Amino acid sequence: MITLKKHLSYSAKFQSLIALFVLCLVLSLLSENFLTTANVWNILRQVSVNICLSVGMTLVVLTAGIDLSVGSILALCGAVSATLVSYGLELEIFNLFVGFGPLSAIMVGIAVGWCLGWFNGWTITRFKVPPFVATLAMLTIARGITMLWTGGFPINNLGKEFAYIGTGWFLGIPMPVWITAIVVIIAVILTKKTPFGRHIYAIGGNERAARLSGVNIYKVKMMVYAIAGALAAVGGIIVTSRLDSAQPNAGLTYELDAIAAVVIGGTSLSGGKGSVMGAVLGGIIIGVLNNGLVLLNVSPFWQQVVKGLVILLAVIIDKAKAREE
């Protein structure tokens, strides 16, 4: 005979999916525009950026870390790619001008994100700086560099080829959705099918035991933060492409949405437990919630209150589950 406790344990595995279903059901009853095809594609385009950030954040949180800098890294990498594709790079010392196509500008932007994330990991592992403090510092540094890079002004008119990344369609599906799907598939394979993924979970579960087992803690953590930075850059390129403009203040509070998606998706803030697909569901829940509140004409101020309460509830549930285990 199946006990109530077993029922609850079984349903807890699908809590994010259940929450998404209930949320969609309620919003479809409250707004006739919610389940339209146009709105569904709009939601998927909007959540694509947060899912990219959330995937990287999941890898970080699985090691019992946190990354508060992804929003600022997103803005800086978007600005770098936009500048290169629009104006190229002039090296006055060598009297040299280097032009960049969309693909090469994107690769440079992702490389910048990787390096900034790697620097986060290096600071955390080399100097034993708490992840919260190290990434908070990078949040400020990257935002400041973005303002210096852009002069505080947006970079516009990036060209049709670059804009296609964020606004184009391929086989009837928006390009941001394709990009996000590729990111998610790679991340799932990385975490589930490779030694690197097993090392991530081992570090979050018990770092001391992982070290004694021969896991290179420093290398894994640096790689995790580097990947998070690179995925923030991917999100920045999508945002910049969609707007056809690199905004100096892009990505503000995006790190909070990413953390919310990770927690709502069932990843433990203590590390070692969670999944990439959980973060994807969490990102979709956040996107659906934002979209629904807009359709219902809820004040932006109340939207922040609701989102904060949802995050708090998710953390409370996470802590309650941890105590039961």
Rank of each mutant, 00 (worst) to 15 (best):
A19H: 04
L25F: 04
L27E: 00
F34V: 02
T37I: 13
N39S: 10
N39K: 07
N39R: 06
V47N: 08
S54V: 01
V60M: 01
T63H: 02
L74Q: 07
G78F: 12
A82L: 04
V85P: 11
N95C: 10
F97G: 12
P102L: 13
P102H: 14
I110R: 02
A111H: 11
W114R: 12
N120P: 04
W122F: 15
W122S: 11
I124M: 12
R126W: 10
R126N: 12
F127E: 14
P130R: 12
M138Q: 03
I141P: 03
W149Q: 05
P154R: 10
G159Y: 15
I165V: 15
I165T: 10
T167F: 14
G168C: 12
I173M: 14
V177D: 04
V177T: 07
V188E: 05
T194S: 06
G197F: 03
R198C: 07
N206V: 10
A210P: 03
L212W: 11
L212P: 08
Y225P: 00
V239H: 01
T240V: 06
D244Q: 08
D244V: 07
A246M: 03
Q247D: 06
P248N: 06
N249P: 06
G251K: 02
G251C: 00
A258M: 08
V262T: 00
V262I: 00
G265D: 06
S268N: 06
K273R: 08
G274L: 12
S275P: 04
I284F: 15
L289V: 12
N291I: 04
G292N: 08
S299H: 12
P300W: 02
I311F: 06
L312S: 08
A314S: 10
